[in-house]
């Protein structure tokens, strides 16, 4: 072993195709850990939902269903623009990509604003994370999700600047695609949080 013929030599830098598929696999792995990070909260939700159905029914009506629905629409739309942004970059359209990423960022910010009003309304009604198990779940689940929105926004901001600087092309756009995957995860988790918290009673 190791004494066979040498096929090719390649130095320090990775082959672009390998780098591309490595980065994508790496991000999928990371998304797996994210799902399990939320997993503890989902498990807690399942247990306490089954244990205290009345509490969940009585208290979930305190949440603003309309605001939740609006935020769902905002996030789904931002996922659409993100996906289109990735495709545009793969076609080499830098300007279109930049605009689409910008729209995605604005959606993310909009989501944050709506959430801010929701949280303030709760605090105004003296509802805090220690009010009840249900509101503990509400605040922790949406809070952890909000944290991911912020991280996603930071990633998108970097992608936006780099796109404007012309760092990405039809040939090299791995960061856009991988950053996009992360943003979709934010949407993916909200797709579950919305019905679990706002709708099921």
């Amino acid at each position: 072993m190791g004494d066979g013929s040498v096929e090719h030599s390649h130095g320090h830098h990775m082959d672009p195709a390998v780098e591309y598929s490595s980065s994508k696999l790496g991000m999928w792995l990371f998304l797996g850990t994210e799902i399990l990070l939320f997993g503890g909260l989902f498990a807690a939700y399942a247990i306490f939902r089954a244990k205290y159905p009345e509490m969940f029914f009585e208290q979930h009506v305190e949440l603003n269903k309309k605001m939740g629905a609006v935020n769902t629409c905002i996030l789904i739309f931002s996922s659409l623009t993100m996906a289109m942004g990735v495709s545009a970059m793969q076609r080499g359209k830098q300007k279109v990509t930049a605009i689409l990423i910008l729209i995605t960022i604005l959606c993310g910010l909009g989501f944050g604003v709506v959430k801010y009003f929701e949280y303030s309304a709760k605090f105004h009604h003296h509802i805090y994370p220690d009010t009840s198990i249900f509101f503990s779940l509400y605040f922790l689940m949406t809070g952890l999700h909000m944290l991911h929105v912020f991280i996603g926004l930071a990633i998108l901001a970097v992608l936006f600047v780099l796109t404007l600087k012309g760092k990405f092309t039809a040939k090299y756009n791995t960061p856009v695609e991988v950053g996009g995957l992360y943003w979709h995860l934010v949407d993916l988790i909200w797709i579950y949080l919305f019905p679990l918290l706002y709708l099921i009673g």
């Binding site: 696999l25 999928w28 399990l36 997993g39 996922s79 995957l181 979709h184």
Partner: peptide
């Protein structure tokens, strides 16, 4: 579709689905 899982190789599928089965196990 948005995340292109449809076009990914089998190992990506494994690592996309296995965490879900662990989540199901935990719950």
């Amino acid at each position: 579709y948005f995340m292109h899982l449809k076009f990914e190789d089998s190992i990506t599928w494994v690592f996309a689905l296995f965490p879900l089965s662990l989540l199901a196990l935990l719950i």
